[in-house]
């Protein structure tokens, strides 16, 4: 019997390569969950805390003090978090783009500030963008994709635990996400300075 099992084990090794290198694509509940969390968060903090917020913050690395609509930026953060965590960069980036695109359509602009750090916490890439131009944003995504700076998507290889910092330019807040795992599940922010962490914790 064990010889049969061994043969089966052996033959499983010869399944189509597409299954072996299959990565995590978007998972429906995952996105639903994220969208819900983003919406709740927008309602919670967007209506109360940030309407009167002064833009006199001290950016972590940048100097921009632009303001933008609260809820749309939060949605962008949701998209970015998924983007940062998903191994299917191209695919997840589309999701990220859809958030941003919506912001641009509805608000005329989408503003996020992104910091990509290496394993030692040193910034390897910074983007401080007021997105009006989708092509420019796509160019950024492409650059990140080819450089693959913040995670390792190879199955079975210890992943790089790097961090993606998301700074919202219109508020005193820094969300810090560990880069995603191989399955691309949504990651838990390490901390937030102004949003209760529980709002993100379901992941």
């Amino acid at each position: 019997m064990s010889e049969q099992a061994l043969r089966l084990f052996e033959l499983i090794g010869e399944i189509d390569a597409e299954y072996v290198k299959e990565k995590n694509k978007s998972i429906s509940w995952h996105w639903v969950y994220f969208a819900s969390a983003a919406a709740c968060l927008a309602i919670l903090v967007g209506c109360v805390a940030f309407q009167n917020h002064s833009p006199s913050e001290q950016p972590l690395l940048g100097t921009t003090t632009e303001t933008t609509a609260t809820s749309s930026v939060i949605q962008s953060v949701g998209g970015l978090a998924c983007y940062a965590s998903g191994p299917e960069v191209g695919e997840v980036f589309v999701e990220f783009m859809s958030w941003i695109e919506k912001d641009i359509e509805q608000e005329g602009t989408a503003m996020v500030n992104l910091y990509y750090h290496d394993q030692d916490g040193l910034p390897v890439h910074r983007s401080e963008e007021k997105y009006r131009d989708l092509d420019r944003l796509k160019a950024l995504g492409y650059e990140l994709y080819v450089n693959d700076t913040f995670y390792d998507d190879y199955w079975g290889v210890p992943r790089q635990m790097t961090y993606v910092h998301v700074r919202l330019l219109n508020r005193e807040q820094l969300l810090e996400f560990p880069a995603g795992d191989e399955f691309g599940y949504v990651i838990t922010p390490l901390y937030t300075s102004s949003i209760p962490q529980e709002d993100y914790l379901p992941y």
Partner: peptide, 12 residues
Amino acid sequence: SRERRVFVRRYW
């Protein structure tokens, strides 16, 4: 997709 990935992680 989820079942497949778990199966492949375990038996591949």
